[in-house]
């Protein structure tokens, strides 16, 4: 084996071993072939009793989709504001970036303190009669807002990291060409940010899809997203629940992989569009025939 392969081996083997073992075990257990006690017995019951599984998948997809959309929109606003609003913009970008190391568990607790029935927000607004229930509703509002809050900072960071170098100068150029602040955001910053927004959106979607803490702390008891259902069944004293837990876990893996596949495909198309546009740093002589060049003066 080459030295290069030896260098990469520990990391790759660790991933292959843990990942492979995890997926294989999950598959076998979901089919009843690796029970904790007793004889292995092949059964697809955990898969075919599909109603709950489909419902959970639907909840997970709903949470991930809405959270991602919100995070992308707010994250883009933060980035656009940072690029166009001078010192105030940079301050907000810095504050937003500072929230990134906050764990989701902490953020879920914080959103809970903010949004519960008699939480901080309700108190700020003077405990109005019609204050909606946000925590533990069928709409998953609090969990979605938790994801959107945390992940919008991530989206803003990715967008700013990707385009801040080019966007500032291009935005100024657009201003000298008569573009207002709104036009600069829509016609310069948004097109430049499309690819980083897509990448960040995909990462956010996959993360929120598989995340446990926020839906567990801030969601209703039922219906459950895949993560909450799997963890509940996994910890159940009823050993028969184990195949269902594993089937739920594998369903989430399958959907995540499918989404990533589609997402990467979409991003590749997006990138191909912009690769044609990426500036090439070569300096050739003008290919114009000299007769045309001198013709300009006439």
């Amino acid at each position: 084996m080459s030295r290069a392969a030896l260098l990469a081996a520990p990391a790759v083997l660790l991933v292959v071993l843990v990942l492979g073992a995890a997926l294989l075990t999950a598959l076998l257990q979901s089919l009843g072939l690796l029970p904790l006690f007793g004889e292995p017995e092949f059964s697809t019951a955990a898969w075919t009793d599909g109603g709950a599984l489909v419902e959970s998948a639907g909840v997970s997809l709903y949470i991930a989709t809405t959270s991602t959309l919100l995070a992308v929109v707010v994250g883009f606003l933060i980035a656009a504001y940072a690029l166009t609003a001078g010192r105030g913009g940079r301050l907000i970008a810095a504050l937003s970036a500072a929230t990134i190391p906050i764990p989701h568990l902490v953020a879920s607790g914080a959103i809970g303190l903010l949004l519960t029935d008699a939480g901080f927000l309700a108190r700020l607004l003077g405990m109005p009669e019609g204050f909606p229930q946000l925590v533990g509703t069928d709409w998953w509002t609090a969990a979605i807002l938790e994801f959107a809050w945390k992940e919008s900072a991530f989206v803003a960071l990715v967008v700013l990291g990707g385009i801040s170098r080019s966007a500032a100068a291009l935005s100024e150029t657009a201003a000298t060409l008569g573009a207002s602040a709104r036009q600069r955001i829509l016609h310069v910053i948004l097109p430049l940010a499309r690819l980083p927004l897509g990448v960040a959106g995909l990462v956010v979607f996959v993360y929120t899809f598989g995340s446990y803490e926020a839906p567990w702390l801030l969601g209703p008891v039922a219906p459950e997203p895949l993560s909450v259902r799997a963890v509940r069944l996994f910890g159940s004293v009823d050993l028969a629940a184990r195949p269902e837990a594993m089937a739920t876990a594998l369903t989430s893996v399958g959907i995540a992989v499918a989404v990533i596949g589609l997402g990467v495909l979409g991003l590749a198309l997006l990138a191909r569009g912009s690769r044609r546009r990426s500036p090439r740093r070569s300096q050739q002589h003008s290919q114009l025939p000299s007769s045309r060049r001198s013709g300009a003066g006439s």
Binding site: V12, L19, A21, A22, L34, S227, S252, V253
Partner: peptide, 19 residues
């Protein structure tokens, strides 16, 4: 090396736990 990103963490842990 990037594959763990695609696996929801709870699913990874549940499977690996047995091993």
């Amino acid at each position: 090396l990037l594959a763990p990103l695609a696996i929801p963490p709870f699913a990874l842990v549940m499977g690996a736990n047995v091993l």
